[in-house]
């Protein structure tokens, strides 16, 4: 779910860059305030790779196929570090895999970083009390939010020449195909956090 180059109006692409820059500035300011920002670097580096590699895997959901996003996982595991980690991962995906464009990097950053931060907020607010439920909602909810932002941007940037009805119908099919991913990513976060709690509780974020 990456916006490619050439399909989005220039103004929207620039707005995406401005939004991502603001979000990155905010995230870096919050990271600076952490007691040990350097201590989070190894985890951020490794999860950037996981996020980058996940986009190479496509899961068949007839009649189409979907990619793992892992935005909720990034938010839960990295907190504010998720923003720079996702942006680096998106840049590598665009340059090396051709997933998403460079002109739309800002917009794609917003599509995935905002849900990651919402996932982080859900986990921080409810993770200690209801860990499984919080993980499920953070993982699945982040996918739902990413889908909503993606659809909003597509509808906002639709050129006048396009058959709006056909594009909306195609978008509806696309969104429906991603619904299983909502559950799958929620379950991935639940399972991963359960495993971490059992074998290495110190690695559980904010635990």
């Amino acid at each position: 779910m990456h916006l490619p180059d050439g399909l989005v109006p220039l103004e929207l692409a620039l707005a995406g860059y401005a939004g991502s820059a603001l979000l990155t500035g905010l995230a870096l300011a919050r990271i600076k305030r952490l007691p040990d920002p350097r201590g989070e670097l190894p985890r951020a580096a490794m999860l950037t790779t996981v996020f980058f590699a996940a986009s190479a895997l496509s899961i068949p959901v007839p009649p189409t196929s979907v990619h793992l996003m892992l935005t909720g996982l990034m938010g839960v595991m990295l907190g504010w570090f998720a923003v720079p980690a996702i942006l680096v991962g998106l840049f590598l995906q665009a340059v090396l895999f051709g997933h998403g464009g460079l002109t739309t990097l800002g917009l794609n950053g917003l599509i995935l970083c905002l849900p990651a931060l919402v996932g982080f907020a859900i986990w921080r607010g409810a993770g200690a009390r209801w860990p499984d439920l919080a993980a499920l909602i953070a993982g699945g909810g982040a996918v739902l939010l990413a889908l909503a932002i993606f659809a909003g941007i597509v509808l906002l940037g639709m050129p006048a020449a396009l058959d709006a009805g056909a594009e909306r119908a195609a978008l509806a099919v696309f969104l429906l195909a991603h619904l299983p991913l909502v559950l799958a990513e929620g379950v991935i976060v639940v399972v991963l956090l359960r495993v971490l709690r059992r074998i290495e509780p110190a690695l559980v974020p904010h635990g």
Binding site: T49, A53, L96, G98
Partner: peptide, 29 residues
């Protein structure tokens, strides 16, 4: 413009990025 179409190229790219991330992680640690 598109990315690599075969899995060998993709696997090499993922391995290179993983190597970079591992290096960063070890350096930070």
């Amino acid at each position: 413009a598109g990315g690599p179409q075969n899995w060998t190229q993709r696997a090499i790219m993922i391995a290179l990025v993983a190597w970079g991330a591992l290096g960063t992680a070890l350096w930070a640690a």
